[in-house]
């Protein structure tokens, strides 16, 4: 297996990069979408049951089913991967962002307004920093999940390490079948744990000092 990995080191590195870059970009996109929706939901409370319904029902839908529903719309390749990964990544962040933003006390919002902050400034300097730890927890869940979802999305010829798992499946019985599937699976686990570590470190630096007891 060592020989197998060494032989394909450039390909492995490239696929790992693709996989991580897909997940990171999709999670970033998902964070922006989810926080925006959460902001909407917290300002219009009537929408909250809808958001909760979407985030619990959405996570129930199996990724292969969503992929199947998506393919006729977006075709095969990178696009379905992006769509599916972003969809699943957005849900835990949305859930946590709603809880986090709701947790910001109304008194603080009033004081911010009293100090002359406009809504944008209030969001950036008061709401977001206070809700950030909870949002970040959702982000970590999303990232871990996305690493696995990205592997599945490779079934529709998406980028990343998932391709090797399906190569292994297609070549089953062949000399390198196990090597392909095993290397890809281990690489995904290792990369997922590394990303999680990175997010923890990010938490250290980005969680406001005042609330990180």
């Amino acid at each position: 297996m060592l020989e197998f990995v060494l032989d394909r080191a450039p390909d492995l590195a490239y696929r790992s990069f693709q996989h991580v870059s897909l997940v990171v970009q999709c999670v970033l996109l998902a964070t922006v979408i989810a926080v925006a929706v959460a902001l909407l939901v917290t300002t219009v409370p009537r929408l909250k049951p809808v958001a909760n319904f979407v985030s619990s029902v959405g996570l129930t839908v199996p990724s292969l089913a969503l992929l199947g529903l998506m393919l006729p719309v977006v075709g095969i390749g990178t696009l379905p991967s992006v769509a599916v990964v972003t969809f699943y990544a957005a849900l835990p962040i949305l859930r946590n962002a709603v809880v986090g933003l709701e947790g910001v006390s109304g008194n603080l919002l009033e004081s911010a307004r009293g100090m002359g902050m406009n809504p944008l400034l209030t969001f950036l300097r008061v709401q977001l920093p206070l809700a950030w730890p909870v949002i970040l927890a959702g982000l970590r869940v999303s990232t871990q999940m996305s690493m696995g979802v990205a592997a599945i999305a490779a079934y529709a010829l998406g980028p990343g390490l998932g391709g090797w798992i399906f190569t292994g499946l297609a070549q089953i019985g062949g000399q390198n079948a196990v090597n392909y599937a095993l290397t890809a699976t281990i690489a995904i686990v290792v990369l997922a744990l590394l990303l999680d570590l990175l997010l923890r470190v990010l938490g250290r630096f980005t969680i406001s000092r005042g609330i990180s007891a």
């Binding site: 798992i165 890809a184 686990v189 744990l193």
Partner: peptide
């Protein structure tokens, strides 16, 4: 943390 599809295969 292992992807389900990898474990299955």
């Amino acid at each position: 943390a292992a992807p389900a599809i990898g474990i299955l295969i």
